[in-house]
Nucleic acid binder design. Structure first.
Length: 687
DNA sequence: GCCTTATCAGCCAC
DNA sequence: CGTGGCTGATAAGG
């Protein structure tokens, strides 16, 4: 951790990094209208211009990227009249890094001025909203799925970046509270949706959606309170003070009864002991009063259930569990001996399972009830530290075709050292911002992962520490080589053969698994595709992949946008076959709107610097959601004969209306064959 | 503008 | 080395 050597205080790019010091609540900034003389013009490539990198152009406040047309989002509206909000900044982020000093005083600017400036800013924002790029006023009021995903992506990308800066030694103590900072920027930039409060369904938010921060609920309009558990809303036509509850968050702070997935006994708010205050009786005010009114008016109340995230100590997961109604209320003595309000909420029947699924998984994990359709508790036979269940709830098939379980990539030929690698000299764990660590340097000066082991950005290449590095195994720069961390399930899908999903919720940026298999020179249809049925068990780095934007918006942290290319840079094409041996990745199906993407990773092992393909979560993925990635299409100049990847125009329509043919195991396998071979699954010796 | 709410993360002790 | 409790700083909405 802090080694106190003081050697690493040389900050080669302080000028750049210091810009972030100016990231403060934008509301504190006086709005300023763009002028020709006001600093360098904002660069923005036209959306339809050809991009050499193969990625679509990126506009900092644009809607979802990609070539798909987005219903509900009028691109022209964004691009034609777009004036970047950054142009309104009175203090353009330092162009020369001279603002390094004195930042602390400027952050704590006078409260009075702050409020005034805030109003002025809001005014400018509202009146200029016709020019506001990204999310229009009406879209801010009423969202849709694309908007909700867009807002969540932008928030999380920014949060990850700020979190990375927070972790960095050179910025310790300067960037703090990355969640709040990211939230603040989103709020003040107007990057949010469903701001208009409503009873019942929130457009674009689906039952079962998961969130990892309370602020995410605010940004998509599911629950507008940043902290309070009850969100009240004035009723039309009612007198002032007459409010009903539209949503509640049950997150374990009170003694709620959450045993029954269809019933929630919710405790009102207030009365908690805090600081020098002792516990007291709850009062029938605010949220409590609103819930009481909701009981009488019988309005729909959205319920979000929050609890500990098992993957991240101390943090929480929130699940949107759909619509409930308050059935009764009463007062009872709480643990402190004070009066607590209790509200019994009952879930409206016929809604998709959400929290119920979590409860079920919990029982599977505790062994209290067995998984229906379980064929094998662990198809890796112990090769991974976490078991992988094999399940079929659809038909009688007893498992996929035989393969040998292999947990990593296998190069059959010795691999040429691409560059001399001596490993880093860090003694414990590599620390971001340590300019002496060559692994950090190779990654552009930053640790590619947050302290939680979450990928910050997609990059042309990520260099992890290898066996020659002196740092310990728990170094944060070894995320993809220490095995996957979620409980997977290989399951039979209805129409796509076998698929992969997880029992655990997955945060955006989480390492899913690597693509394991044997490296081959070229595709031998017979050997690797099996009967010419396609190359479903082959991964190729040189296919054409649908472009998408995943990284943060550099402008929001005061960086040059040129620095964040998401284009891969792979020295030579890599082809991996998992036909005969592989890991769970071979079961991941294709999707045109995937929730997983791949990222090239390099690290040294046995004196060889090897290329690996690692999968990461593109967005938050609820439990039991099928994991999919973009299989890509063959380059047109290659004579690849592939039934399953026709070189058709890949319009979203094609993907959505006609599901692809089964990608895995089109021909069912005899059960005896699998049973026989499952015992033969090899435990790889590589770890 | 002040109050309520309780989150999030840093910190310390074990 | 992970866990749990405590606390400070904090934002939105009323």
């Amino acid at each position: 951790m802090e080694e106190g050597t003081g050697v690493n205080t040389v900050l080669p790019n302080l000028g750049d990094k210091s810009r972030v010091l100016d990231v403060k609540p934008l509301r504190t900034l006086v709005p300023q209208f763009p002028e020709a003389s006001n600093g360098p013009p904002f660069f923005c490539a036209p959306p339809n211009a050809p991009f050499p990198s193969g990625f679509s152009s990126f506009f900092p406040f644009s809607g979802p990227q990609g070539s798909q047309s987005i219903p509900g989002l009028n691109k022209n509206e964004f691009y034609s009249t777009a004036v970047p909000i950054r142009s309104f900044r009175a203090e353009p982020l330092a162009s020369d890094g001279q603002n390094v000093h004195g930042h602390k005083s400027s952050v704590s600017s006078s409260v009075k001025k702050k409020a005034k400036k805030r109003k002025a800013f809001d005014f400018a924002f509202t009146t200029l909203s016709n020019f506001n790029p990204g999310i229009s006023l009406s879209e801010r009021d009423d969202g849709n799925r694309e908007l909700v995903e867009n807002v969540l992506w932008r928030f999380d990308a920014l949060r990850r970046k700020l979190s990375q800066m927070e972790d960095s030694t050179e910025l310790t103590g300067i960037i703090k509270r990355s969640v709040l900072k990211a939230s603040n920027i989103m709020m003040s930039e107007g990057v949010r949706t469903n701001v208009r409060k409503r009873i019942g369904v929130v457009p674009g938010v689906e039952i079962g959606d998961i969130f990892f921060f309370r602020f995410e609920l605010c940004l998509v309009g599911l629950h507008a309170q940043a902290m309070a558990g009850i969100d009240p809303m004035p009723m039309k036509g009612d007198l002032e003070g007459e409010r009903v509850a539209v949503s509640i968050v049950s997150s374990g702070g009170y003694d709620d009864d959450v045993e029954d997935p269809d019933v929630l006994v919710y405790t009102g708010h207030g009365g908690n002991a805090s600081g020098d205050k002792e516990a007291s009786d709850q009062k029938l005010v605010r949220g409590n009063l609103a819930l009481e009114r909701s009981l009488h008016r019988a309005n729909e109340v959205r319920v979000i259930r929050g609890f500990q995230d098992s993957a991240h100590q101390g943090s929480k997961v929130y699940v949107y569990d759909g619509i409930y109604k308050v059935q009764e209320s009463w007062v009872e003595k709480g643990k402190s001996g004070c009066n607590m309000f209790k509200y019994k909420l009952v879930r409206i029947p016929g809604q998709k399972d959400a929290f119920a699924t979590w409860k079920l998984i919990q029982k599977w994990k505790e062994g209290l009830s067995s998984r229906d359709g379980l064929i094998l508790p662990d198809l890796t036979s112990g090769a991974e530290s976490i078991p992988v269940s094999l399940v079929n709830e659809v038909d009688d098939e007893k498992g996929p075709a035989h393969f040998t379980y292999l947990s990593t990539i296998k190069y059959s030929k010795p691999f040429k050292l691409l560059q001399p690698s001596f490993g880093c000299d860090c003694r414990e764990a590599c620390q971001a911002g340590n300019s002496n660590c060559c692994c950090i340097k190779r990654n552009g000066g930053d640790l590619p992962y947050t302290a939680h082991g979450i990928l910050v950005c997609r990059k042309p290449m990520i260099y992890e520490c290898g066996s020659l590095c002196h740092c310990l195994r728990n170094c944060k720069n070894r995320v993809t080589q220490t095995g996957f961390k979620v409980h997977f399930e290989v399951f039979k899908t209805k129409d796509r053969g076998w698929g992969l999903r997880s029992w655990d919720p997955i945060r955006a940026g989480t390492f899913i698994c690597e693509y394991a298999g044997e490296v081959i020179d070229k595709i031998n249809t017979r050997q690797d595709g099996g009967d010419g049925e396609g190359n479903e068990f082959v991964f190729q780095t040189n296919r054409v992949y649908e472009s998408f934007k995943w990284n943060y918006e550099p402008e929001l942290v005061g960086e040059e946008s040129s620095d964040t290319t998401e284009d891969y840079d792979i020295p030579s094409p890599l082809i991996i076959s998992s036909k005969n041996s592989g890991n769970v990745a071979r079961f991941m199906n294709h999707s045109c709107s995937p929730n997983v993407f791949w990222q090239p990773i390099m690290y040294e092992h046995n004196n060889e610097v090897l290329l690996h393909v690692a999968f990461f979560a593109k967005r938050h993925i609820p439990p039991m959601t099928e994991l999919t990635y973009d299989y890509g299409v063959p380059r047109s100049d290659e004579g690849e004969n592939n039934k399953f990847h026709p070189s058709l125009p890949r319009s979203p329509l094609f993907c959505r209306s006609s599901p692809r043919p089964p990608v895995h195991d089109p021909t069912p396998l005899l059960s005896s064959s699998f049973r026989h071979t499952s015992k033969l699954n090899k435990v790889p010796s590589s770890r």
